[in-house]
Amino acid sequence: MSLREAAPAKVNLFLHVTGQRADGYHLLDSLAVFGPAADELRGESATGLSLRVKGPFAAALAGEADNLVLRAAHALAERGGVSPRAALTLVKRLPVASGIGGGSADAAAALRLLNRAWGLSLDEAELREIALPLGADIPVCLASRPARMGGVGEVITEAPRLPPCGLLLVNPGVTLPTPVVFRARTGGFSHPASLPAAWPNAAAMAAELAHLSNDLEAPAVALRPPIGEVLSALRTLPGCLLARMSGSGATCFGLFATADKARAACASLPATWWREGGALTG
């Protein structure tokens, strides 16, 4: 066995907090897309289960005994009735605790890779059943395609057809745990968005998304002011159609008409910021 799976960044083009359950979890409405940056998971044959982490952001996960990748592997093995055997290597290229679902994407990649490696042949619906108890974002990351997210993130429906466009991801180098942002949020709840079946081009999509919001952006900026600096920088870039924070932060995105324009804009930003430009996966 020698397998590889990409774990693309999940980006929330908008995120409305629509309510709160009795158990404290918040209800959301969001449009999730993927790309252009990704972690990578590699798997080799082995007599037991192990995980090695390397890459630019590996240090942030050092000493983490209960990595979400390993939890996903054990859950899949239990469901499939097999012994968990694989030597896994996670190449961590996405910032940790940054609002782009890196850990969830890694766990989803583990489920896809090991489902093949162990010959389980579980379909996407079955993998979602395994994924949900591990984390609300993992089911949408399994397919890594645009989707509308509801509930606490587990209700996944079809997204509008997206036009070709470019996406620039930028993180100022700060971490921001999701629970902290939710606790800092004030005010009422937003209504779910009304979206069309499709957008004719990137400009039309950006114009409509501009009327929506990320309800976590204001508290995140208050907690981590560098997020505001990134948003200001994105909004001044030539060709940037929309700038917004993704998820609970601190990563922000800029939407562009083409992938080439997103890559060109990327080069003009401070080298001290993590940034990646390319195509939005449609």
Rank of each mutant, 00 (worst) to 15 (best):
L3M: 12
A7V: 07
H16R: 05
V17Q: 04
Q20C: 08
H26A: 03
L27H: 06
S30R: 08
L31Q: 08
A32Y: 14
F34E: 01
G35E: 01
P36G: 07
A37M: 05
A38S: 15
E40W: 15
L41F: 10
R42Y: 15
L49G: 04
S50P: 08
R52S: 14
V53W: 01
K54H: 13
K54V: 15
G55T: 01
P56D: 00
P56L: 03
A60F: 04
E64Y: 07
D66L: 11
L68C: 10
L76R: 09
R79M: 09
V82F: 03
R85S: 12
R85Q: 15
A87K: 14
L88D: 02
R93F: 06
L94T: 03
P95L: 04
S98P: 04
I100T: 10
G103F: 01
G103K: 04
S104F: 06
S104K: 12
S104E: 02
A108V: 05
A110K: 10
A110R: 09
A110E: 00
L111E: 01
R112E: 00
N115G: 09
G119D: 01
L120M: 05
L120K: 10
A131Y: 00
P133D: 00
D137P: 07
D137V: 06
I138M: 02
P139C: 04
C141D: 00
L142E: 00
S144D: 02
P146C: 07
P146K: 11
T157R: 13
E158R: 13
E158C: 11
E158Q: 14
R161T: 15
C165F: 08
C165H: 10
G166E: 01
L167F: 03
L169D: 03
L169K: 10
P172V: 02
G173I: 00
F182Y: 15
F182V: 09
A184P: 11
H191E: 15
L195M: 06
P196H: 12
A197N: 12
A198I: 05
A198G: 07
W199K: 11
A203F: 09
A204N: 12
A206S: 12
L209F: 13
L212M: 12
S213E: 14
D215Q: 11
L216T: 10
L216P: 10
E217S: 08
A222C: 12
L231W: 10
A233V: 05
A233E: 00
R235I: 11
A243D: 00
G247W: 04
C252K: 11
G254K: 08
F256I: 09
A257I: 10
T258N: 05
A259H: 03
D260Y: 08
K261Q: 15
K261H: 15
R263W: 08
A267R: 15
S268A: 14
P270W: 01
W273N: 01
